[in-house]
């Protein structure tokens, strides 16, 4: 069983800045209370998307049903990445699967947490020598908790989840920010595995910009490579282009320049 303290940390130590965006000044006296409330709610309501590829999946039903009943802890399964808070990966991740896992992870709404269950997610487990299996999950996406074992029992799963809850409540579970801040790193690993033309329909960089999650290592050589071969997907913003009005406007523009 993996302890909270042994959670692998990708990259540099993370500053603790939950709920407060850098540079914003909170003047509201109730801000801290409010943040506490939000963090509490986040820790007590976790929707879980399980990506059950390996044998580890069989240990989840007992964790959910009457014996251990995850719902006590506010945890319940959900089906689409948009709705989920936790991405639960149980077992080995083949290269093909990993593409889908990454897409799913990118489609989830932050704050989002990844739990790797079973040894296979930690180091490839018994597939260590397989050419087609991704060995370390946290090379490709930030993982909040590994629950090791082959396979971990439901008690271990529950314990791991409780650990995550504790981390969320105390504001330590912010690995998801790392994906934005060091996107280049993760992308590089992904590119090494999938090839240089790897891309997903999600636009992580734009998202990072939009939500002020842009970090020093968001961009780099790998993102440059990405932009090289990929036309960035523009969001299909709603636009009102009434031809007559536009024509008039452009005419007046021309008129302006002529003068």
């Amino acid at each position: 069983m993996t302890h909270i303290d042994q959670v692998p940390t990708p990259g540099a130590p993370r500053p603790v800045e939950i709920g407060v965006k850098p540079g914003t000044k909170r003047t509201n006296p109730f801000a801290r209370v409010f943040d506490e409330l939000v963090r509490f709610a986040q820790s007590r309501s976790l929707f879980m998307l399980h990506y059950c590829t390996g044998c580890g999946a069989v240990e989840l039903p007992p964790a959910m049903t009457s014996r251990f009943d995850m719902e006590r802890l506010g945890i319940q399964p959900m089906v689409s990445p948009r709705q989920a808070d936790i991405l639960l990966i149980t077992g080995y991740v083949s290269v093909k699967t990993l593409k889908r896992v990454i897409l799913t992870y990118e489609q989830m709404n932050s704050p989002k947490y990844v739990i790797g269950i079973c040894s296979c997610t930690v180091n490839g487990g018994m597939y260590w020598q397989s050419y087609a299996t991704a060995k370390k999950l946290n090379d490709y996406m930030p993982v909040d908790i590994y629950i090791a074992g082959c396979m971990p029992r439901p008690e271990a799963v529950i314990e791991g989840l409780r650990g995550l809850i504790e981390n969320i409540r105390t504001g330590r579970a912010d690995a998801w920010k790392d994906y934005y801040r060091r996107y280049d790193h993760y992308l590089g690993n992904q590119q090494r595995l999938f090839g240089a033309d790897w891309q997903t329909p999600t636009d992580v960089i734009a998202e990072a910009r939009h939500y002020d999650l842009f970090g020093p290592a968001t961009l780099g050589a790998h993102t440059a490579l990405l932009e090289q071969h990929q036309r960035p997907l523009e969001a299909l913003e709603m636009r009102i282009e009434i031809p007559e009005l536009m024509r008039r406007r452009s005419r007046s523009d021309q008129g302006g320049t002529a003068q």
Partner: peptide
């Protein structure tokens, strides 16, 4: 609640399929 961001229509749930 937080700010929302408009995503591209192809950034869409398709059971892990790339659209």
């Amino acid at each position: 609640g937080g700010r929302s961001r408009r995503v591209h229509q192809l950034d869409n749930y398709a059971g892990g399929h790339f659209l």
